[in-house]
């Protein structure tokens, strides 16, 4: 198990380095330049190029960037001129992560519940209900769901605040809007997986041995069926926790989402890089966790390696 983890970590570090290198050079190929304004003055532009060190050869800039990165320094944003990328991520990530975790908790709890209930009641009303819910969840985009919840509970009924993210009441609508899609996909995956597992020989064996239904479902069926859900959880966790542009902007959550979009719109090189490195590292970390979790849930993975 130890060797398995070490191998995974080394692979993760290499992936990250490749990512940084590719993105570093790719952003320079984007059309346009970072200093963009309808009132751009050439002398000012020169001064700004020097200020950000863009007058140095690209390869020098690259190694400087890597050197700074080793110290955890992602540099200054070029759009938000006196804020560091570290500060922007540091002040926005907690909000995105908080929203993401709430959404994830809702999505997992209800997604698994619905998936399992649907599988156990295959073909009857409960199953149909769960399937319909799942289809709605996967087919309605989050901005429609978000706007719908905002309109009904915020503006019409006035039960909950329409936007911003200050106390618990403010977190409910954005969390639900964000959770819906993940919940639907979790429940679908779980249902399909449960149905597949129930046909396996070892379930029949367990039943033949006279084990109780509870024991069979809990110990054999769910434990085996949950593997695909864990697989999709890696990238989902990374995506949900690092901010979602639409929901955050709709509910005015001060999270990371808008900076992703803005940084590419503005050609803000250091922000694009910082965001990508952060997101990449987070995604790689989540996938690493998933790999390790496999080993914990399914002993065959451990033995196999």
């Amino acid at each position: 198990m130890g060797k398995y983890i070490v191998k995974r970590v080394i692979a993760a570090v290499i992936t990250l380095l490749v990512l940084i290198t590719v993105v570093f050079f790719l952003v320079r190929l984007m059309p346009g330049e970072p200093f963009t304004s309808e009132k751009l003055n050439p002398i000012v532009k020169e001064n700004m190029i020097k200020y950000y060190g863009f007058d140095k050869p690209l390869i020098v800039q690259y190694f400087q960037y890597l050197g700074n990165l080793l110290h955890g320094n992602l540099g200054y944003s070029m759009k938000f001129t006196n804020k560091t990328v570290n500060y922007i991520i540091g002040s926005t990530f907690p909000y995105s992560a908080d929203l993401g975790l709430r959404a994830l908790a809702i999505a997992l709890a209800f997604g698994l519940l619905l998936g399992i209930l649907a599988a156990l009641n295959r073909g009857n009303k409960l199953d149909v209900f769960c399937v319909i819910l799942a289809i709605i969840g996967t087919s309605i985009p989050d901005f429609i769901m978000g706007a719908f919840l905002q309109l009904v509970f915020g503006i019409k009924l006035k039960w909950l605040p329409v936007a911003q993210y200050t106390d618990f009441k403010h977190t409910i609508l954005p969390s639900l809007s964000l959770a819906f899609y993940t919940m639907a996909s979790v429940s679908r995956t779980m249902r399909a997986s449960m149905l597949e597992v129930v046909q396996q020989d070892y379930i029949k064996t367990a039943r033949a041995k006279g084990l109780s239904n509870l024991r069979i479902t809990w110990k054999h069926q769910i434990r085996n069926a949950i593997m695909p859900v864990i697989t999709i959880m890696g990238p989902t966790v990374a995506a949900v926790l690092t901010g979602t542009f639409v929901i955050e902007s709709m509910y005015a959550v001060p999270g990371m989402g808008k900076y992703y979009v803005d940084s590419t719109n503005n050609n803000d090189y250091s922000m694009i890089l910082g965001m990508t490195v952060f997101y990449g590292a987070f995604l790689i970390f989540c996938n690493l966790l998933v790999d390790i979790l496999y080993g914990v849930v399914d002993p065959r993975v451990r033995v196999g390696k």
Binding site: A97, D98, L101, R102, L104, A105, L108, A109, L112, L113, I116, L117, L120, N121, N213, L214, T217, W218, I222
Partner: peptide, 23 residues
């Protein structure tokens, strides 16, 4: 069905607990 409800209650609690600490 009765079992499933019970199992789910436990599962939900577990999944909540799993995210509760960082959350």
């Amino acid at each position: 069905r009765r079992f499933a409800a019970g199992a789910m209650a436990i599962l939900m609690a577990a999944s909540m607990a799993a995210v509760a600490s960082p959350s």
